[in-house]
C-alpha cells in the first residue's frame, strides 16, 4: 500500500531548504531531552528561551505548527507553569514523531 497512514502530518517545503531541514528536525528531537530535563529541574528560563527560539525558527523552516508550539512553550516558561510546559513538550514530541516532509 502506498497510502499514507492517517496519523502522519504532511508538510510541503521548498526544495531550497532540502539541505537544512533534516538537520533542523534532528536538532529539535535532540532538544526534547533538554526540555524534559529542564522541566524536571524547574528550569523555566531554559524552557522560555528554547520556546522563544522555536517560535522564531519553526515558521521560517516551513513548520508553522512549531512556531505556535514555541510560542506556547515560551509563555509556559515565562509563567513557570509546569503543566502547560509539559503539555506543550508532549505536543512538540508528537509533532516531530508524525511529521513527514516532502520538498517541492
Amino acid at each position: 500500500m502506498t497510502q499514507e497512514p492517517e496519523d502522519l502530518i504532511s508538510v510541503e517545503i521548498e526544495i531550497d531548504l532540502e539541505d537544512i531541514v533534516p538537520g533542523y528536525l534532528e536538532n529539535r528531537r535532540r532538544e526534547l531531552g533538554v526540555l524534559n530535563q529542564a522541566l524536571a529541574g524547574g528550569d523555566f528560563e531554559t524552557i522560555r528561551r528554547l520556546g522563544h527560539d522555536l517560535k522564531g525558527t519553526g515558521g521560517g523552516y516551513g513548520f508553522d505548527a512549531l512556531s505556535e508550539l514555541g510560542r506556547a512553550l515560551e509563555q509556559a516558561g515565562r509563567e513557570a507553569d509546569p503543566a502547560a510546559a509539559g503539555r506543550t513538550i508532549a505536543q512538540i514530541k508528537d509533532f516531530l514523531a508524525r511529521v513527514r516532509v516532502s520538498f517541492v
Binding site: 531548504l17 522564531g56 525558527t57 521560517g60 523552516y61
Partner: peptide, 15 residues
Amino acid sequence: DSADSRSLLAVILKR
C-alpha cells in the same frame, strides 16, 4: 546565536 536561524537566513540569501 542559533545555528538553525543562521542556516535558514543563509540559504534564503545565498539562493
